[in-house]
Design a protein around this nucleic acid. Sequence first.
DNA 1: CCCGGTCGTCGAAGCGCTTCGACGACCGCT
DNA 2: AGCGGTCGTCGAAGCGCTTCGACGACCGGG
Lengths: 344, 344
Amino acid sequence: MRNISSNRFDDGRDGTVRISDVARHAGVSPSTVSYVLSGKRSISETTRRRVLDSIDALGYRPHAGARSLASRRSNVLALVVPLREDVHVPVAMRFAVSVVTAARDHDHDVLLLTQGEGPAGLRRVAGSALVDGVVVMDVETDDARVPVLRSLGLPSVLIGVPADTGGLTCVDLDFAAAGSACVDHLADLGHRDIAFVGQPASVYGRRTGFAERTLAGFESAARRRGLRATFHPCDPAGAGGLASALVRDRPGLTGLIVHNEASLAPLLDAFAGHGRVPPEISVVALGPPPPGVPELTRVELPAEELGARAVSLLMDRIEGPERPGVTLLEPRIVPGGSTAPPAG
Amino acid sequence: MRNISSNRFDDGRDGTVRISDVARHAGVSPSTVSYVLSGKRSISETTRRRVLDSIDALGYRPHAGARSLASRRSNVLALVVPLREDVHVPVAMRFAVSVVTAARDHDHDVLLLTQGEGPAGLRRVAGSALVDGVVVMDVETDDARVPVLRSLGLPSVLIGVPADTGGLTCVDLDFAAAGSACVDHLADLGHRDIAFVGQPASVYGRRTGFAERTLAGFESAARRRGLRATFHPCDPAGAGGLASALVRDRPGLTGLIVHNEASLAPLLDAFAGHGRVPPEISVVALGPPPPGVPELTRVELPAEELGARAVSLLMDRIEGPERPGVTLLEPRIVPGGSTAPPAG
DNA sequence: CCCGGTCGTCGAAGCGCTTCGACGACCGCT
DNA sequence: AGCGGTCGTCGAAGCGCTTCGACGACCGGG
């Protein structure tokens, strides 16, 4: 064990340990310590060990600012979270947490930006080299941030798919496939007459795209399978009325696909009021498990996987050359107790 | 307008503008630009203007790493968000957003840390000088992070109050006062016989402290006002039974204080089943407005105010000498339609 | 009119790290 | 034995900013 320098000198006067302290303690030069840490040049195993031992003997942590100045890498990612009321907050949180976790796996930290700052926030963190890249959640079809991102030259990954994806890297759930999967699930069980209860009417054609894509998936699959299939926009207040109308007008209806988190509970209550409860009428939910409603068959939104994927794509963009493209995650049907073959 | 240097030189080859570019463009030295930006020395109004004009003519943004290296300030705050399932996610999100907003008002950005990393995360960001201070949300009575914070010498503010607050800066809602305020509200309306429906029994005495503090406030106020008052822990599954029992055993009961977000809806449903709906029986809720339940009289959790306060206290700690202490925010009763003088 | 003080500005010295080029030492060839 | 080629290490030169001390210029008071 070589321990050249005396302890008196090892701790700098204000308590922080610098790379030169480690170097002295290990009997090497600062650059060697740096190379041990970065692995950018080969270092003999003996030296490596000695340096690493010194590092944790002294409790050394590289100064983030100095590192980012010298290496032109901050090892920080920005995450833009949505503020809008209509995003499901717990899901957004799951995203955020998974992004942080994934970022840590790649030795990065995460800076939180809110929608509130908009493009200005992106410009700021990009311009000041505060972050190496950015993950933008909840991207709309015509998102004001998209042109900014394109112009900024900051590596970025979008969660969600805007209208023009040229030059962009995007990740999202394959909502069209999700819509189809629900239809196929019901058709496979033998259902011939189903209804799709969607978002409030105003949502379609407006912004997010995911609603239309789901609906399109539903419609094409229903056509393919030759089902009687109808579409009904819905809001929580109208759920009761819709249920009554369906019960009255569609006696042959045996399957329901519900893509509307907020209306799910009132809708089920209303159907129950008409004596129709799952699985006597089959119900497939699209979205997060609503609180209080038990074990529905549903398509999960794989927030954790999306977050991790977004980060991993972002890291690729940061390291390597840009290779844009849209990644759509395969939806998975989670069986619950709410679907069964139709009666009779 | 003096524009000494030619544009060819103003834009560095990789597109980033440095302080020296601004200086040249404005015909001053880099240090002068720095002083204009920091305000740490007086600068003549003419020079100031000229520098500021150059800054936005060139689109200059100081390099965050360089700045933090030289000034020993990163202008970044860490925010530790809870992961536990039992915190109300939308409320946590409101906190987080308000912290970010407040931080931006103080020219700081926010780094997101998750509970998952625990003390190690705090050590990391502190040791590497990544952040100037940290806001810790959802602090428990015996929180493992508290000793770490104390030892780290990193300025910090806790949202929540641990058992030992020595040397710490904490902010929280005054839950005892909230409990009292509910009692006073009902007593002022003329109620003489009330019940407090609390968290599941296991919560009391365990970790968060806020439950006990609320209960203590309830009890002391009830005693002070001379009310008949009882306490009932409750979980969602037991809400129906509790309602029946109360209706049966407490015919004189006219007021309910509910400190249990999850049980609120089933409890109200159960009371409604016995023909007792607000405001015929008065109900005060403690906590965030539950979805679907309309306009209850309640005590709000002032997340925005707490977040802003936490940041402002943290900034004080970062700038000035440490001045620890516990700040409790006054609760506010938000009138809804669910309380009225007792019948008869 | 001279002198001490303030004001506004500048130059230079770091902050702590990474990275480039250089350079011995040692290897296996001819 | 001599030679090119790795391999492992070092020294020095920045990265872009802040900040300290210095220093003219200008002010008002004796």
